[in-house]
């Protein structure tokens, strides 16, 4: 029942994007997101479309999945677009509703804001679709390591993150089981007013918390008995190492960035958005 949430989910497949070092994917995604917000020419967006399309193809994640992820944020998207449409002023007036009017500039900004947001969501979900949560935190830890100098406990934070991520599916599964067990004992979770429904959650939440604490306890014990005591002097079983493919991926990203920059700077004026 609860298991059908797809946002931020990993999509297992064998593709060159899946195989990339997580650091490459994090850095490239960040650069891509930034590029979306600094450029404002039509050709720049064309380049972004080509880049994103190419990555989607290469990742072998079905388009259906990517679109499913968009559905979750469709409300936010609509809201932003509508706000932009009515509140941005400038250029010719296209439609006049007395209280508000739609201007040429408003329309353009709204359309491009929508494109930006959609690309932003697709871009970041490609990263989570192709990278396991554990690989992501490993990549983050490795990228943020320089912050150690400023007394930021990078390893500890990364470890907490990966444990939390690891436990999300386990707790969801547990919730599912406990819900079923209580329904089998005649618990009614669906009907009644808000107070009755809240009360009906008790038989689910108590066992869930008990089990979460039990698991936390077991995990702590297991980590301690393997002499875990934080990040200092800790080495990895599988250190992150850049391979040829990773350098090539960086190269592709750099080419894309250069292309958008050049296109943004030197295209004829009438192709500009604002």
């Amino acid at each position: 029942m609860i298991r059908d949430i797809t946002i931020g989910q990993y999509y297992p497949a064998k593709s060159c994007i899946h195989r990339l070092d997580p650091r490459v994917k994090i850095v490239s995604t960040l650069l891509f997101l930034i590029s979306l917000f600094v450029q404002n020419s039509l050709l720049g967006y064309a380049a972004a479309t080509v880049f994103l399309g190419g990555v989607i193809r290469a990742s072998r994640v079905p388009l259906k999945f990517i679109v499913k992820g968009l559905k979750a944020v469709v409300m936010l998207l609509m809201f932003t677009v509508v706000m932009q449409l009515f509140l941005t002023k400038g250029g010719d007036v296209l439609a006049d509703f007395r209280i508000f009017e739609i201007t040429e500039k408003g329309l353009r900004t709204a359309v491009f804001m929508a494109v930006r947001l959609i690309y932003l969501i697709i871009g970041s979900s490609i990263m989570t679709f192709t990278t396991t949560p554990n690989a992501l935190t490993d990549g983050m830890e490795s990228l943020l390591r320089p912050l150690n100098r400023f007394q930021v406990p990078v390893h500890e934070v990364a470890m907490m993150m990966s444990i939390a991520l690891r436990f999300i599916p386990i707790l969801l599964e547990e919730t599912d089981k406990i819900m079923k067990a209580q329904i089998a004992r005649g618990a009614d979770l669906e009907s009644g007013n808000i107070i009755q429904r809240t009360k009906a959650m008790v038989p689910i939440l108590v066992p869930l918390f008990v089990s979460a604490f039990r698991r936390a306890n077991d995990l702590a014990m297991a980590m301690e008995s393997r002499c875990y005591n934080g990040g200092e002097n800790r080495t990895r079983m599988k250190p992150l190492v850049y391979k040829t493919g990773d350098y090539m991926a960086y190269a592709v990203t750099v080419i894309y960035l250069t292309a958008t920059f050049v296109l943004g700077r030197f295209v004829p004026f009438h192709l500009w958005i604002f």
Binding site: K177, I178, A181, A184, V206, P207, V210
Partner: peptide, 20 residues
Amino acid sequence: MKSLRSQVGLVFQYPEHQLF
């Protein structure tokens, strides 16, 4: 379904995890 569930009693694996 409710009546079915009271006639077919299901004891899950590790049923003690449902005690509350």
